[in-house]
Design a protein around this nucleic acid. Structure first.
Lengths: 227, 227
DNA sequence: GTCTATACACAGATAGAC
DNA sequence: GTCTATCTGTGTATAGAC
């Protein structure tokens, strides 16, 4: 699959995230009109990601955010009751959308080799599409309260479990080698994460996500494939 | 090489870092006695890493740091003129020590396979020994001023260049395959970084740095070796 | 629904006693 | 050399006008 094909086949996840936040916080938000809420939530989240990535969430002041999002301070606080609440909402609702899309794509496949490659591709494509969100989530998870933080860590492990499962299945059906699947999944995960953690570096070198996906798949193949 | 052997053969880098900071900032520091300075610098840096990793450098207040280091606010400010200065000093002087040790160990080797494996091992061992420092550097580099930040990024690329160089040499002498060495170095770097970025996860799974090093080397070998 | 003006707490930094 | 006490700016959050 190519990135452009992927993009064409998934709905606008940014809007989905806003809608999910709206539904999850319907009672807390003081505004009534759905259309107004969605419009402003999008502005707030866009600005949060932009400024939060530049200088870190802690260093971003509510005044920064208010001018970045084009709302007054008072306006902001009719959507979220505190700065921490903005962080929590930004991270938690996004996650659900992400796993939903990932699941959808790999469900069809059963052959281990194809399944592994699809999982890697879709993960990279998702992180490309939502790269600001992934980077921000990674860097700011430590600023969540303990409970939400625990959820974030759990979710981090989801990709790893997914890859590990595919490796185990592949070994059972005899196409993959016997290896330390848990460790293998960890380092494969690390390679996937590098794409969004060092997005700037790869941009500067003109590496596209398609090239990176192709390279990663080729890189790990000689390791897990029976030779 | 084993981690314990490595530890025995390098001097106490934490003290070296304090000494380097002392020398680099001799004029700015208002205290005269070297012994006092070294003792307090160590307390300050230890507390900075501890608290900075827990809640992030921005969220750490000077009051947090002062109580963590066992000095008064006034006392702190006779060592550093500002909070940013503490960050700058923590990151910049450490880097030099790190590259110095890495260079020392790989200089002797010329055979590409051995050289690559030593480089990976020593890098992992160094990040194990100074894992708080590495984690902190990675997470807080974005809070440096533009110039120091540029240095931090450059230094990040050093490992990558080193690995790339070994891969190129290995190909020239005919033991390594022809690959995209730049990309290969990037993803190998990502695997090395995972060790200190996810230190807690590997601890919980009882993976030692020796096991991780062994696994990584085995993981990438089938990729770069001519078969 | 959105704004302006402001309360109040707490941050970084310093002066000057000991 | 180290401390306590304090200044001043800025941050989050809210009240109430429009």
């Amino acid at each position: 699959m190519k990135y452009t094909e992927f993009i064409d086949s998934v709905p606008d996840s940014r809007l989905d995230i806003c809608r999910a936040v709206f539904i999850a916080n319907r009672e807390k938000i003081k505004i009534k009109k759905e259309k107004t809420i969605l419009k402003n939530l999008e502005k707030i989240f866009d600005a949060t990601l932009k400024i939060g990535i530049e200088k870190g969430f802690q260093a971003m002041t509510m005044r920064d955010l208010s001018s970045g999002a084009g709302l007054s301070m008072g306006g902001l606080y009719s959507y979220f009751s505190s700065k921490d609440e903005i962080l929590r909402a930004s991270l938690s609702e996004g996650r659900k959308i992400v796993w939903q899309i990932l699941d959808e794509f790999i469900q069809g496949e059963t052959a281990p080799i194809a399944k592994l490659e699809i999982a890697l591709e879709v993960h990279l494509f998702l992180t490309e599409k939502l790269h600001k969100w992934f980077y921000f989530s990674y860097m700011e998870a430590k600023n969540l309260n303990p409970e939400d933080r625990k959820n974030a860590v759990q979710s981090e492990l989801y990709t790893e479990k997914l890859i590990e499962g595919i490796l185990i299945d592949g070994q059972k059906t005899g196409v993959f080698r016997q290896t330390n699947h848990k460790l293998a999944a960890s380092v494969i995960k690390a390679m996937l994460q590098d794409w969004y953690l060092k997005r700037g570096k790869y941009s500067r070198r003109n590496i596209t996500v398609d090239q990176y996906a192709h390279f990663i798949i080729g890189f790990i193949r000689p390791f897990y494939l029976k030779s």
